[in-house]
Amino acid sequence: MNIIGINGSPRLHGNTATLLEHGLEGARSHGAHTECINLYQLDYKGCRSCFSCKRDGPGYGRCAIHDELEPILNRITNADALILGTPIYYGSATGEMRSFLERLLFPRKSWDTWSSLVERKIPVGVIFNMGATEEQMKLMSYEPHLRLIEQFIRDIFGTCESLYVTNTVHVDDYSKYRMKYFDSVGKHQRKKEVFPIDCQNAFSMGAKFALDTK
């Protein structure tokens, strides 16, 4: 059983990476082999609209771009589950995560039948981490954008579960930055009291995926 985590954050040890690691730890607790891919360490770009993946022949349904993302996409073909993690930048996933999703999802969509080309459906989870509070998330209409990402994933892989983690800290010491808009005291208090629960929820997601794929 192989479960792959995809970190769409530039921070290798930040909130998103921490949540993702708890998700993978949950999977390992039930015997899964896991690996974590940090997108910001790879040299790649998004879809080039070459339509090679839609051309008749041996390359049908496969991205034709040869770069550092290619072997990752190949490994995902044999994965039993995926857990994606991304911070929210301007109301949506990071640019690297969106480019990754373009390359992952678009080749696997049939333009003959408008259905998925993936025969073996696998569970996919997305951890959305954001500095915004739940109220700010609703005020700025984040949710429709994030639900659309979920729907695109569900359309290809059959399922998509999400974990929304809100009001996380941006930096350790807010006094060094011009960020007075944010309640730094409240954020650090939430990190102590609520973030551990978020991490446990991520753990539970990974554990569930491992059990579901046994």
Rank of each mutant, 00 (worst) to 15 (best):
P107R: 06
I4W: 00
C50L: 01
A32K: 08
E70G: 00
A81C: 03
I197N: 11
C63L: 14
S29F: 04
Y44F: 15
G57L: 14
G46I: 09
V194A: 12
E70M: 02
A81S: 07
Y164G: 00
C53W: 09
G14W: 15
L19S: 01
Y164P: 00
I149Q: 05
E21C: 00
M205I: 12
E35Y: 03
I156A: 03
R120P: 00
C160I: 11
K54F: 15
A132P: 02
I122V: 03
P196R: 00
A17M: 15
L101D: 07
K187S: 08
A27V: 02
T159G: 04
Y142E: 07
P71R: 14
R120I: 01
F128Y: 14
I153R: 02
E193H: 14
R190L: 12
T133K: 04
T77C: 06
C199F: 00
R62Q: 15
D112Y: 11
C47P: 10
I156K: 01
T159V: 10
E119M: 07
E161F: 07
L117N: 09
I88R: 05
R190V: 07
L39W: 06
N129V: 13
S49E: 11
F195T: 04
G59A: 07
G59L: 13
T166C: 07
L117P: 01
G46M: 08
K180I: 06
R98C: 01
L20I: 10
I88F: 04
G57H: 14
P107H: 11
D67L: 11
P10N: 08
G59W: 11
E161C: 06
A79F: 02
Y89G: 00
K176W: 05
E102M: 06
A32L: 06
T16F: 10
K109V: 11
M130K: 10
P10D: 05
P58L: 05
C47M: 02
A32M: 05
A93P: 02
L82W: 01
K214N: 15
R103P: 03
G125Y: 05
G61C: 09
N7R: 06
A64F: 11
I83G: 01
A32G: 05
C53N: 08
C63D: 14
K109S: 07
S52Y: 13
I153H: 05
L148G: 06
T168R: 07
G85V: 12
C53R: 08
M140A: 04
N38R: 03
R28V: 10
N167T: 11
I127L: 12
H145W: 15
L139P: 12
T34M: 00
E119G: 03
D43R: 13
L146P: 01
K109T: 10
F128Q: 10
T166Y: 09
I127D: 02
E96P: 05
M140Q: 06
L24C: 03
R154Y: 03
